[in-house]
Write a protein that binds this DNA or RNA. Sequence first.
DNA 1: GTCTGATCATCAGCAGTGCTGACGATCAGA
DNA 2: TCTGATCGTCAGCACTGCTGATGATCAGAC
Lengths: 145, 145
Amino acid sequence: MSTEPSTTADPHEVLGYLLKHANLKLTALADAALEPLGIDSKDFGTLRVLAHREPASQLQVAQTLGIDRTTMVALLDALERKGIITRRPDPTDRRRNVVELTDQGLRTYDAAQEAYAKAESTFLAAISPTATSQFRRTLRTLLTD
Amino acid sequence: MSTEPSTTADPHEVLGYLLKHANLKLTALADAALEPLGIDSKDFGTLRVLAHREPASQLQVAQTLGIDRTTMVALLDALERKGIITRRPDPTDRRRNVVELTDQGLRTYDAAQEAYAKAESTFLAAISPTATSQFRRTLRTLLTD
DNA sequence: GTCTGATCATCAGCAGTGCTGACGATCAGA
DNA sequence: TCTGATCGTCAGCACTGCTGATGATCAGAC
């Protein structure tokens, strides 16, 4: 049986391939949709975290996104240069930077949210709403395992 | 509505996050399972393509895997150094290299296939077989769109 | 035959990403 | 006041994937 593979004959059936390319496709769609706003899907992830939390430290944001704290630095540098976020020392713990959306950042986020939703719809256009929520639920289950 | 986001409040709900981390988790599991064999999940993809085709040119393999032809060079270099594949000029078109599994490569592939299947099962352990095939089908649909 | 344009594998170089390890500043507790 | 830990930052490394160039080769036009 192990020398007579059948179901794995098509590399396109392999989960790793499917996940990788699904991710690539969605990212490409999102990046294209967000490009007019001057941000990409990675930036958008950061904005989303900031928009839905109390002003957070850099580390908290990074951990929520699942990226390294050193990677977060450059990401925030770029967003700060664009006037989308601000950093200021946390008065209660001056080791920390409090990261917040600026007013402009909030406007950018609102526009970005629409753009991203559109990209996600495009990505999901081929499957039904039921299949979509099932898909999302499955992914969540696989991760929280 | 766009200023009152609800379903997107949790960054972990976002498709991009879910896909990325699902991919990361599966890759980590597969790499760990394949590590004793001296290969990783990327190498395994190459082996699978080679095992299920007529001896193919480098370009064909790269296109099947969806990676760049220049990336394929280094990948095959490593596999050749390990004695898993061979390259020889195609007699009918000497611009091409015919890439083939060696006998050792075939043995490695057989072992790798079992190891990878085990990793995939671990990854999918939390969902039912029905949900698994549904999941696979959905991914395929999203990509062939 | 001989050009011309295309194809293939390779290589150098570049950009993006993520990591480790170090640093200074700061905090919390002994 | 010490000691050890934490946070943000930075330099440096590794990995990946890309572009653009090169040399060898092929196929078709003439």
